[in-house]
Computed example of a mutant assay.
Amino acid sequence: MSETFPVATLRAFSNGVFTAAGLAPEDAATVTDCLIHADLRGHASHGLTRIPIYAERLHRGVVNANPRVTVTHTAPSFLVVDGDNGPGPVVSLKAMDAAIETAKAQGVAAASIRASNHNGPGSFYVERAVEAGCIAIAMTNAPPSMAVFGGRDPVIGTNPITFGTPVTGNAPVLLDMATSVVARGKIVEAAKRGEAIPEGWALDRDGNPTTDGQAAEKGVVLPMSGPKGSALAIMVEVLAGVLAGGRFAGSMGNLYKDFELTQDNGHFFLVIDAARGAARTAHAERVEALVAELKGSALASGHDAVLMPGEIEAMRTVRGTETGITLPANVIADLAAIAATVGAPALAGEQAA
């Protein structure tokens, strides 16, 4: 049975778990904010359900709870960031803040990040750049769970891409997508609950199409749009993994199963100060004009609105902030178990109205 909790209750609980697992309060708050951001946007596979595995890896010492994140400028606009095996959200937010600062000074910044870990939704970092008046693109590589087009072995990650731009008005323009048909975390969650998945999401370990969540978890997720998603995943691997000098493809550690090998995720951020473009201060207004033209186009049969990338997630965030976040029974049980393991206060039973 699921329960709905106020955001403040979940934030206090999560901060307690991560500080008990060894993080400084500021870093615990960063990880918590990242996970809550995902849940509020409706991406529960990257939300608070990740607390147990993030905290367990910290508790076991597989992830460095006190990283020294270093930023080196190898060119005026190019940053090399070493995360010192710190939590992905902590490393990535520091990298994004450095990239924004550089973009404001130079007009553009590219950040290549290594020695990091799973960093959650890219929208968490891209939104920060957008709020600073920047266009941003974020990429990350991931442990191998996806087959490349034509193959059946898990040789590459779902390698997500996030893109965002400043815009005036109410409709955001923020794309956040995996290069797979679906985020791997959704298959993991379906397997936990013993649920079926839609046809076309995955192959079992023998290379056969499956709708069984548990069989899919043991097999591979498929790239979106066949060769197109596969090609995008490869390009993300080049920018986020190969360029960063870290592990890539099959050499990465498994988030859930490997407690000896560090993940060494790589990320890549590109940040552009929108005020440096030809439109200068009119950029956000021009994007709003683009949005208005697109949303004003004639509707196809069966549709009642033209929605921009990120618009549904923005509406969910407003609603969830007011009503709270609903967690399924299995996630609540997992949260209770990890709190007991690290010695953190239990999740309060207070429910949202």
Rank of each mutant, 00 (worst) to 15 (best):
V221T: 11
A348R: 12
A333F: 04
T179L: 02
D334L: 03
T341E: 15
D39R: 09
E199Q: 12
A44D: 13
A95Y: 01
L175Q: 03
G250M: 06
S116D: 00
V287M: 14
G250S: 10
V31E: 07
P166A: 08
L40H: 06
V181M: 06
E217L: 15
T321D: 07
T341Q: 14
G241R: 03
V181G: 07
P160I: 00
A353H: 09
T49G: 15
G246A: 06
A95V: 01
A20G: 10
A339P: 03
G310I: 12
G219Y: 13
Y125R: 00
D27W: 02
T158N: 13
R247E: 06
R41V: 04
A110Q: 13
G207T: 01
T19V: 12
A346W: 04
E26I: 11
N66V: 11
L243M: 10
T32N: 00
P172T: 06
A38I: 03
H303N: 10
N64C: 05
R286I: 13
R114V: 11
K257D: 14
A132M: 12
T74V: 15
A278P: 09
K192E: 15
K104V: 05
P25M: 00
P309N: 07
L299S: 07
P309K: 07
I161M: 09
P25Y: 02
A244S: 05
V236S: 07
V167H: 14
